[in-house]
Amino acid sequence: MNLEEIIREENIVYRRTPLLTDKALSYCPGCGHGTTHRLIMEVIEEMGIQSDVIGIAPVGCSVLAYEFMDIDMIEAAHGRAPAVATGIKRTWPGKYVFTYQGDGDLAAIGTSETIHCCNRGENITIIFINNGIYGMTGGQMAPTTIPGMKSSTSPFGRDTAMMGYPLKITELIAQLPGTYYVSRQSVHTPASVRKAKKAIRKAFENQKLNKGVSFVEVVSNCNSGWKMTPVQANKWLEENMLAYFPPGDLKVDGQLVEQGKTS
């Protein structure tokens, strides 16, 4: 069988979802933002909910997320996406509303909006990209920069005595009664991408149940911020980021998952 016989329309098993626009993603080569964008759009395509989805983009590298997703989208002020989502969901309870936020947006400047939105139990989906650094502004320390990790504002490594500790906001959020599903995933290997997609799908499907916030943290590389190749960055992520931010479900169907158990 030659290649011409294989490369036929009817033999396609994987292709770029048409819910991503034709525009080239503005992210650095190998960045997990692109992968996560794709997963969200694949989930929306598979669920057939494009006409009922409203997405909210943050400030940070993914500020232009609305350029790449073929859905109605809103650009929020830095950290305010959960409040914007609240305004929409309260007035359009039948729509699917999601925020897409980085670590600086969600866990530093927007901590209040994040926690109160989760605590009120808004029936929305929050996708939280954690790459431990401020990518867009050039690699400064983030609330999730792990101890010892270098950034342009922690050039000798994060010194917790001076700079404080990384914020495990996902663990914090899982404790709130307003959250229904809380999960931490990553997108550094094909297997982890498949799992992350399942979590994102669940987080969207949960909106039908009206039981509160579904929150998916996606640990991702920022290879240019970390000053590594994409392949090195994904290895470093597995060995270092995931040691501090262990992947797995923290809360499922409103019930906390026992520590140490992963799904």
Binding site: I74, A83, V84, G87, T91
Partner: peptide, 26 residues
Amino acid sequence: MVVLQAESEVAAINMVYGAACTGKKV
């Protein structure tokens, strides 16, 4: 009509922003 007490004025105005984006009188 929806009425919600926000956690701050910062959140309140951004809730207004969200609802206004969808054409609501907010």
